[in-house]
Design a protein around this nucleic acid. Structure first.
Length: 232
DNA sequence: TTGTGATCATCT
DNA sequence: AGATGATCACAA
């Protein structure tokens, strides 16, 4: 197994996809080795390890913030932990939320749209019963949202942003949103961020991020890999 | 300290 | 079991 790790960024989507396809079927021990590293015993203290490994393998620009993982292609990379049925094990973090400005932004210009316009999904075995070292990478999928999916995201986004724009950020819970939800996103519960309340006064709130529910990512995988639906 | 990479831990 | 709220590591 060679030519799995790339130091330079891919020049085309086709090249990116080819690189990702070369990872399919390999386990994390082999892939870590080609990056001169080792898989940690588990992900408890290394939650982003698989994602970072994929970035390194595919030649993503290292640590560029607020930009796509592959800037010249406008492609975002997302690993997706899946179970034996091909159903995602976890929700997918999309982006953090600028609480003070989000009310002045249109959906089309939003971080959510920028991040999700073009995504390379890389499924990886994610069940905790499988030792991290032996988990296998699946076939990648280069994806853009359909018109229907984009509209569904917009509906959720606008509903959720209304809370923030109204200064009701503390009223938002993970229960809101059919496909897109807002949840805390911080190093720990004590982190505060400036926001505003219903009167426009400043207040400190827990940082938030947008996440895709598994029902959304599950649909993406079902469509593409022709996976069976829910068992009767 | 903030944003990106996410999964953990616990409750329902 | 599934989902929500909380949390961990690292780079810039």
């Amino acid at each position: 197994m060679q030519a799995v790790r790339w130091a330079s960024p891919p020049q085309t989507e086709r090249e990116l996809l080819s690189r990702a396809e070369a990872l399919a079927g390999q386990n994390l021990t082999a892939l870590a080795r080609s990056c001169d590293t080792q898989a940690p015993p588990d992900l408890r203290r290394h939650k982003g390890w698989v994602g970072s490994l994929m970035e390194a393998l595919l030649g993503a620009s290292a640590g560029s913030k607020a930009d796509a993982d592959f800037p010249q292609l406008g492609v975002e990379l997302k690993t997706l932990p899946v179970d034996g049925r091909g159903v995602p094990c976890e929700s997918t973090f999309v982006t953090s939320i600028p609480l003070l400005e989000i009310g002045d932004v249109e959906f089309e210009q939003s971080r959510v749209v920028r991040k999700l316009s073009r995504v390379l999904w890389v499924p990886v075995q994610g069940e905790r019963s499988i030792p991290l070292a032996t988990r296998v990478v699946g076939a990648p999928l280069l994806w853009s949202p359909s018109a229907e999916q984009l509209q569904a995201l917009r509906d959720d986004w606008e509903e959720l942003c209304l809370y923030i724009a109204r200064g009701e950020v503390e009223a938002i819970t993970g229960h809101l949103g059919k496909y897109l939800q807002v949840r805390p996103k911080a190093a720990h519960g004590g982190v505060r961020r400036v926001a505003h309340d219903a009167d426009g006064a400043r207040l400190l709130a827990n940082p938030k991020g947008f996440y895709l529910r598994t029902r959304f990512t599950a649909e993406i995988l079902r469509e593409h890999y022709h996976l069976p639906g829910r068992r009767p």
